[in-house]
Every structure is written in C-alpha cells, then in structure tokens.
C-alpha cells in the first residue's frame, strides 16, 4: 500500500487548491487503537442501499438455511423469535470509512442456527447470503461460527427499521459492514467460494477492516 493521504478522494491527484481554514471534523475524540485504519467515528447511522427498501410483512417473512438443493431448516417469524436469543455490543465499520462504536444487536447466532437444524458441524466452508431485493454477499463459515455471526432482529433494543435492514439482517461486525447483509432471507452453504454483489464488482472478496481490505486488488 503506497503512502496515501487520509480519506484520499478517488480522483487522481492533480493540482489541488488548499482551502483556508478547512479541516476534517472527523478525527476528534476516538481512542486510536479502536479504529481500523482509514476510518472515522460517526454518531449518525448512515444508510447505504443498492436498491429500494423492501416493505416486508412479518406474516410473510421466512428465513431458510440451504445446502445445494435441499432445505436444512426454515422458520417463520414466530418460530425464529422462539430460537435462543443473544445480545451483543460491537463496533461496526463501513467501507465508506465511517465507524460506529458500541452498537447493540440482538438475534440468533449462527451457532444456534446450526444447532437448531441438528448439525454439529457446518456442512460447507462458505455461505452466500440472499436478501429481499436481490442483494447477495459471501462469507466464509469460519467467520460466522464461534459467535462471530448472527441473524439480528433488534438494534438498540428495538426492531431494526426497514432502512437499516429490518426485519432481519446478517451481522458480521468484524468484517466491513457491506457483509452484514440487510433484509436477509436465506443462507445458502457453498462448497466453493463465489463473490456476491459487491465482491464481484470492485470490492474485496473478504473485507477485513484491520487489513484495510476495501477493494478487489487491495
């Protein structure tokens, strides 16, 4: 990685004009070792979506685990809410450089999903998340088990708002937040890794913020 200016604009560096008195407001009061490289802390919760916000009725909602053509498990909303619930507090990091600290989420861990379908071991190495609206993202199973990944239904104690991915979103907070897929409906196990929506279009296949793996080629 060549020496890059913080928050360098995407455009080639030509002659730039220094604007008197302009400075970044972002690097204010954050413990330095808490933020991955290139990130700044926000108290907002920005919304970034690849499409319109789906309006989903809970009565129609289901969530499924699949392997190849077979269904490992499927739950409607009431059934899903009856699964063991876990609450966690984590920092989240968006590839567009904002980070939000100490966010609280509640839902069902990936480990509990596997238990619920009677599996002691995950049946494959990778998954693809499939969402309402067609969004997809791929995640190694190793990054979901051991409490690292959840299907969440509550943010800060309240149902996740639709714009933020409700009724349910995948949460994989140790990777860039585009992996925490909104409006998730299916997790499909894959023998071989395949790139999802952003991974096939310029973005890194794995997305570790601590290694600053933002883009394909990083």
């Amino acid at each position: 990685m060549t020496g890059r200016l913080p928050n360098e604009s995407m455009i080639a560096m030509d002659e730039t004009t220094i604007s008197r008195g302009f400075r970044s407001k972002r690097q204010e009061q954050t413990p330095k070792n808490r933020l991955p490289p290139g990130q700044y802390v926000t108290t907002d919760f920005p919304v970034l979506s690849a499409g319109p916000t789906p309006q989903i009725k809970l009565g129609d909602w289901t969530f499924a685990l699949q392997l190849g053509g077979s269904l490992l498990g499927k739950w409607n909303w009431a059934e899903f809410e009856a699964l063991p619930q876990t609450t966690i507090k984590r920092d989240i990091h968006c590839v567009t450089k904002w980070s939000k600290l100490d966010t609280t989420w509640q839902g069902v861990t990936f480990d509990d999903l596997l238990k619920a379908v009677g599996l002691k071991e995950p049946p494959a190495f990778y998954i693809m998340a499939h969402c309402d609206g067609g969004y997809t993202t791929n995640v190694p199973v190793a990054d979901l088990i051991g409490g690292k990944g959840m299907i969440t239904t509550r943010y800060e104690g309240l149902p996740i708002p639709p714009a933020h991915g409700g009724p349910a979103r995948l949460l994989v907070p140790h990777l860039y937040f585009w992996k925490s897929a909104k409006w998730i409906r299916r997790v499909r196990f894959m023998e071989k890794d395949q790139p999802g929506f952003w991974e096939s279009f310029g973005y890194h296949n794995y997305g570790d913020p601590w290694k600053e793996q933002r883009y394909d080629g990083d």
Binding site: L48, A50, G51, F201, G202, G217
Partner: peptide
C-alpha cells in the same frame, strides 16, 4: 440511483431492475 458512495446502481423506474452499475476504486473503474 442507489448505492452512493460505494458505487452507482441505476434501476428501472418501472420495475426496479438494475440496468447499470458503476464503481470507481483505486484499482480501476467498473
């Protein structure tokens, strides 16, 4: 239009299907 600033996802105003996507990363344009 959707997805700024990760990229541009341009959808049909009738059916919401994706017509085009564009992205500009340090490694190139898509």
């Amino acid at each position: 239009p959707y997805a700024a600033p990760m990229g541009a996802v341009l959808r049909c105003s009738h059916c919401d299907g994706i017509l085009m996507r564009a992205a500009h990363t340090p490694h190139g344009r898509w």
